[in-house]
Design a protein around this nucleic acid. Structure first.
Lengths: 114, 114
DNA sequence: AGTTCATATCGACGGCTGTCAATATCGACA
DNA sequence: TGTCGATATTGACAGCCGTCGATATGAACT
């Protein structure tokens, strides 16, 4: 699952109508976050700092291929950084990408007429 | 698609490990945002203010049942407010819910060791 | 009541994706 | 080189979801 660069930068969802391409890119970014196993992996890695994959299979009760798959999705999306050392794979959070999603949600409240 | 109250409030994804229940709720919230048609609907309604559903079918090139379905998903998730007046349905953005997702992405950067 | 129009709901289809068993890859170590 | 152990990849299956045609609901108007 490849996530391309977000073309609609900085403005937020609520500021102006999204183009089809920008909506596709942003939806793909949200889709990566739309899985409970991936959210728990992110939160565990963020809390522990750099984490060995060997410590991530057991606590979530999923099989080793499933965890490996989710770690790959998060890495491909730019949310995790992977570094292999010997037999082990070490994962850490790449915080920059979160800003893209957060900015998309930071609509200007004064634009919303209710 | 029912979205329950987010139990893990205020702390953000990157602050502490998520419980299974909190991860399920948060993933459901993100899933609502993980569709390009829904994102475009949100951005159009936010830009125009209160919008008649009759003005939302044409610009996105989707069938009337499909648009109605997405509007219901967004309304059930608490992101839109629906008001029927006569034959017409008027939708407006309910901005409060966006804060839940934004806060979840507002992890403390100093916790992330890279 | 009957017609028309806007919206919602239903039923079905197709594609996507989370999951796991089996297997492959690759480094460490003897 | 050969074995072991950690991780990645493959293939297959099941359930979910976006989509649309058909239909239902309900309001306005004659």
């Amino acid at each position: 699952m490849e996530v391309k660069t977000i073309t609609a930068c900085c403005d937020g969802l609520l500021a102006a109508p999204l183009s089809e391409a920008a909506a596709d890119d942003l939806a793909a970014a949200f889709k990566v976050m739309a899985d409970p196993v991936r959210l728990r992996l992110l939160s565990i890695i963020a809390a522990q700092g750099e984490t060995c994959a060997c410590n991530l299979t057991t606590p979530l009760g999923k099989s080793q291929p499933t965890i490996s798959h989710h770690l790959s999705v998060l890495t491909d999306a730019g949310l995790l950084h992977r570094e292999k050392r010997g037999k082990w794979a070490w994962y850490s959070v790449a915080p920059d990408r979160f800003a893209v999603l957060r900015d998309a949600l930071a609509g200007a409240p004064e634009l919303v007429r209710q």
